[in-house]
Amino acid sequence: MSEIGLMLLRMAVWLGLAPLLPGLINKVKAAVAGRRGPPVLQLYYDLARLWRKGVVLSTLASPGFVFGPAVAWLAVVAAAALLPLGPLGAVAGFRGDVVLMIYLLALARFATAWSAMETGSAFEGMGAAREVSFAVLAEAAVIAGVLALCVQSGRLTLADMLGESAGPGAALLGAGLFVVLLAENCRVPFDDPNTHLELTMVHEVMVLDHSGPLLAAVLHGAAVKLLFFAVLLVQAVLPMGHWPAGTALAALAGGVLLVTVGVGLVEALLARVAFRRVPLLLTSAWVLCVFALLVAWKGGGR
């Protein structure tokens, strides 16, 4: 396939398939609860509807309020473009691209939190404070996980690191990254996407004053971020670099599906933890990643 065609295919996967994941999670939750649940494509309908709507802005919002969702969406998509999709590869790969990827997610966080602070709302300030505070531990865990991959493979390019996977520590790394996935995407037990009580939310409360196309950008970006973490998790665990392309692609799709179902099951079976327990949970994720790192270091892979 030509390089341009491959590029379009990758972008189509990231942008087009991402909104499927929240629908799947909701389906799983509904099935566990014995309900029928909303259609799997619900988020697509929502996005289309929001994109056509008008906008209500806070009287306090500056022009930067529009920059926030736009930059956050772009940063998440750019981070996703750097992450290889198994045999489909990434848009660009260079030594140290992994650091750029992590910092693009930080850029998205800065932009989202900036927009939240624009409105002068105490709720949104609360949400932004929680988001940036919990992200400190999540980022430490991700860096520890990436270091585990780097030490295991001896490489600094995402494609090489993920092709090699985490080796003997893969299970530890997978568990750690799964917790990070839940935290970064504000799923139960860190945050409840279904709750509408402003005082207890993290991500949802930051976007209370976003409406219409702005909210569509936020929701789509969140879906891409979920898919991003699921793909990262699956590739960090499975050594796909050694498999034939077809098998690897099937394994990637199956893995992402499994992670999605896992998120749904967690959401259906667990309650949200109290806020003061969140750091504890994230620290455990960090410790899991550090153990994976130690296994990679002392296990003498390569």
Binding site: G54, V55, L57, T59, A70, T119, D209, P213
Partner: peptide, 21 residues
């Protein structure tokens, strides 16, 4: 992206209201 979104907002029509309190 920011320019595109701003353009979209101008077309969609913007209303101002107090922050959700």
């Amino acid at each position: 992206a920011a320019a595109g979104l701003a353009r979209k907002l101008r077309r969609a029509g913007v209303r101002r209201a107090v922050t959700w309190d």
